[in-house]
Design a binder for these strands. Structure first.
Lengths: 257, 257
DNA sequence: ACATAAAGCTAACATGCGTTAATGGACCTT
DNA sequence: AAGGTCCATTAACGCATGTTAGCTTTATGT
């Protein structure tokens, strides 16, 4: 494995590419986005499977995902449990800024590009840029909302619907950062990855993928999902995007600034 | 059902009782705690099952749980999914301060006592009391950490272990706010509540309770759990308290103030 | 082109969990 | 004390999922 091969379309910033701001983008102006851009001190490529952060780590910088996917994982016994996925533009350890140590590990799912911001810089942000600070708090609250949805999904849906919901969520999250996915959503996920996200065995994840194929809902091959009817897939998965707060969920109208 | 009957032991504050600060307590001094106390504008009692907040609500105040338990619920189809539980001292809708609307409902589990803080007051706090603001961010990050653990639990454990883990978690969380539970952990949870928290049917929750009894791990009667060996129960549930950050997890040592 | 490893696929059997139905027990109301 | 309601319990049967094993396909490196 070597460095990233994925294409970065229409690069906006010389250093990090256009998606740095990610989910913050909607809530900040050009000025703030430039300011954040200036905070990034280093940009690195890492290969598939790289363990970027370990549970228990104490950090002095926070990391933003610029390109690729990462898993939030907790290992227990000899198995891995994936408790979250991040897409480009997401901070992946903003909680490491406020919490002493990390409660879970971060592992690259496929090749990734990441940027680092020192906690020292973040402290300055907290003091001097209250609206950016607020947007960062929003970002961690959105993570919590996504966590709650995952809990509901695990309680409510069977394995095929869980997998469909996962792709429906990614489809929407990519759309929210300006990446429209027309027909094929490409990911580096193996069926074992899907299994570890859905809390089922790899064999059963394979059955579930087969069922989605048989039903005509979607074709998943080596992580890439193909469908001509995203609406049908989302209906099948009982997907409702409200929890992603895509419509400017931040409360801006009550004199925050 | 009528108003609260639970005892409030060793009341510290005249208005709200000693546990107002809850999980914030460890990270703030007397001065800050008094300040928070002063923010509480109203205190109310509500009966079991009261829907305190609805998914989709837009709020202008945030609520702290003073006495009792509440569920975070998402309804879908004709079933209810419980995605979280809060104990006394927890803010239950701090995210409603930063997010435009709530992504889930809050329902009283048994009789509760709650206090309200206006968002206007919170905005003042954010500006004038950075260490309190930080503690509140911490509180929401801790919720996210608990959510991740629930995801792992649902992916990893079968129904009996999920129930054991739930009580183990509550046991620890109560300890962290100064309420040591010696032998019996009393809750108002029905077996249907346990089922909705664990993502299983009520019948299967009943089987799981029976298995815990047969194994001698714990006896659960009408929500109250009895055991003479909490360590054994926690081992059975693979409980590890790290994710609750009970040891002062907030990063205080790097010039936050 | 070939060898190898990783990933995907299939089958058979065991177990966890859902569903329906019916019974029993605890608490509340009158 | 009687009746009613909510909750807990048990049994029987079917489906979802785990486990073990072996096989096939695809990607990758030489």
């Amino acid at each position: 494995m070597d460095a990233i091969r994925g294409d970065i379309r229409s690069v906006r910033y010389p250093l990090t590419g256009e998606f740095l701001a990610g989910r913050l983008r909607e809530h900040l102006d050009e000025n703030d986005l430039d300011y954040i851009e200036g905070l990034v001190e280093t940009v690195e490529d890492h290969a598939d499977g790289t363990r970027l952060l370990e549970r228990g780590d104490v950090t002095n910088k926070s990391t933003m995902l610029i390109e690729g996917y990462v898993f939030r994982t907790i290992e227990s016994g000899d198995r891995r449990y994936i408790v979250g996925v991040q897409v480009p533009g997401d901070f992946i350890d903003l909680h490491g800024f406020a919490l002493k140590r990390l409660d879970h590990s971060i592992v690259a799912a496929g090749p990734v590009k990441i940027g680092s911001v020192s906690h020292e810089s973040l402290r300055t942000v907290m003091q001097e840029r209250p609206n950016i600070a607020r947007a960062m708090w929003f970002a961690t609250l959105l993570d919590a909302s996504i966590h709650r949805k995952w809990i509901q999904i695990l309680e409510q849906l069977d394995a095929p619907k869980r997998i469909a919901h996962l792709y429906a969520e990614l489809h929407k999250r990519l759309e929210l950062i300006g990446r429209n996915v027309p027909r094929a959503l490409r990911t580096p996920f193996t069926q074992l990855d899907l299994a570890d996200m859905c809390g089922v065995s790899a064999i059963h994840a394979n059955r579930a993928v087969g069922k989605l194929r048989d039903l005509g809902v979607a074709e998943i091959r080596r992580g890439d999902l193909y469908t001509d009817d995203w609406d049908r897939l989302k209906r099948y998965a009982r997907f409702n995007a409200d929890y992603l707060y895509g419509d400017g969920a931040l409360k801006l109208d009550q004199g925050w600034d």
